[in-house]
Design a protein around this nucleic acid. Sequence first.
DNA 1: CTGAAAGCGCTAACAG
DNA 2: CTGTTAGCGCTTTCAG
Lengths: 357, 357
Amino acid sequence: MTETASRPTLEAVAARAGVSRATVSRVVNGGDGVREPLAERVRQAVEELGYVPNQAARSLVTKRHDAVAVVIAEPEPRVFADPFFARQLRGISKELTAHDSQLVLLLTEGRDDHARVGRYLAGGHVDGALVFSLHLDDPLPGLIRRAGVPTVFGGRPGWSDDAPGAADFARTAQNPEVVYVDSDNRGGAREAVRYLVGLGRTRIGHITGALDQTSAVDRLDGFRDVMADADPRLIVESDFTPAGGERAMRELLDRCPDLDAVFAANDLTASGALRVLRERGLRVPDDVAVVGFDDMLSVAEQTEPPLTTVRQDIEEMGRLMARLLLRGLDGHGAEAGAGGAPRGVVLPTTLVRRASA
Amino acid sequence: MTETASRPTLEAVAARAGVSRATVSRVVNGGDGVREPLAERVRQAVEELGYVPNQAARSLVTKRHDAVAVVIAEPEPRVFADPFFARQLRGISKELTAHDSQLVLLLTEGRDDHARVGRYLAGGHVDGALVFSLHLDDPLPGLIRRAGVPTVFGGRPGWSDDAPGAADFARTAQNPEVVYVDSDNRGGAREAVRYLVGLGRTRIGHITGALDQTSAVDRLDGFRDVMADADPRLIVESDFTPAGGERAMRELLDRCPDLDAVFAANDLTASGALRVLRERGLRVPDDVAVVGFDDMLSVAEQTEPPLTTVRQDIEEMGRLMARLLLRGLDGHGAEAGAGGAPRGVVLPTTLVRRASA
DNA sequence: CTGAAAGCGCTAACAG
DNA sequence: CTGTTAGCGCTTTCAG
């Protein structure tokens, strides 16, 4: 009745190996500074007892948690209509795993959720945070700043340098740099449009994404880079959804019946556009060529015809975000170091040719 | 140089409020048993100092973590082609949030990952685990059993009662019951097939899912319940993917050109089947009616024609899993209670009529 | 190179 | 009802 079934402690291992707790601790944490015969005895004891360190006890003294929060702030459930986050999560997970860090997932949907996330981050439960899908008016950056947690953003944050939130955020000593990872949205868009031009298309339309997100703005900018003097009616604002793509495509066709190509802000939008084109009896790519963005296989490979699109390596984005964060953590605040951590890392995109253009 | 910027402790709050640590602790944790004027003083001090409890210190003594692991064990990246998990995660997240519990996400891809997960679970870092997408030969149940962590499975686990893993798992004192949440796959399949029969279809084919998952097996059983004496050539094994659906549909058409309906194991598969049907010049639903399973909107609403399908409430599944787990935890091992927790909870499905059947 | 001792911040008896 | 007192299991000086 003395022995409970609870897990063995350092003490138990020490007793079994005939050494002190300190020695066991040393062996367990890298083992430097313990002579081999002893170390081996300890390892054996650990093995035999099935000892696993108590993370809570460890955190209490080290102030480290080996855990990173992943914050996905998306008010609309729409997000989950595409496998975007799943892919990023996978990338993040791989990298964190390699560093023995845990992934704490924080999903938010409304204002009160934001407060909760702020509190959690401020609570010092994690070593850092990876934050996604900020919109222009997002209160999260402010909360994060106040929480003082090392953070890497997924996608270029929306506030420009003179926006209220930005100054607020960037001026903090603890966040001397806003670190983010993004795809080369502008460059990718440029390549897509240039490709259409190269195909001999001249009346090229653009269906934008939700313009409260930088990815949509950047893709629009890329479009404009190439089509500087385009008829403004060739640009229709939309929202990244298939239904939005349909609406926009109709609008576009009504405005400019002589249209011969469309660059859609993402694959989902393109799929909607494709449907409308078919419905109107227009052939793709013969009458109208279509290019998307993302290369979301479950969409791009399934449309009819399969979609030519700009691929971004989503999983790699996730992996890189995690790597950047962990490097900063290991480097003991290296973000503020000489030369500084990169303010933003932009991953290249590649054009994937299929049948739609 | 004395004051570091570290977060305030209970001690600090106690000092400021002029009470003892114990009193502050009481107020912070529910506040019962502290007289109002004092309690208010404490709350104010907490507010002023921006005190947030140190979870590590708390866990160390309470042995609770207010954290639940969500294990998604899917070797193939395929999973992430559909928004399934995202939806479940959302449901889980909502429920955990309501209980102030954190969600620790564990993604696994290979054998070594399993070991890692086992170690983590055994490490006592979380209060319980939610485990998804087990396959028949999955080593995870064994690991979980050994870890002795309260667990709820998503989807009926694959091992039948006399399978090696099952006995292994179920016989443990700590896991007297295998708790899981699932959709009524069999009933839903039955309803789908009956509906086709009601439409006057007589040559009804079935494209199965990956038969190493119970959901696929159960849907097949449901099909058979209604089509007991069906031509065996009308059943083609597949794998839940669109490409698999295409292959299976071709096979089906080759074997039975007189086919007049198809029940596909999921929407993705159905979308592939639909493509082949169109490619062969068969009209849907006139020549061949098609019914899917899942009601994954991003698929079912986007196919041509839109898919009639069996809806399962995925988010609710997630929510329910979390609720079951938390209830068990609160009930202090209530799973073993008189009458016992439900062995399995099966959620109803509903047939959603669109244009394909 | 190893052991002894001092907490990390909190909760939970136990007194008062 | 409130304060005092022990630790939870671990890392980390500091001696030896």
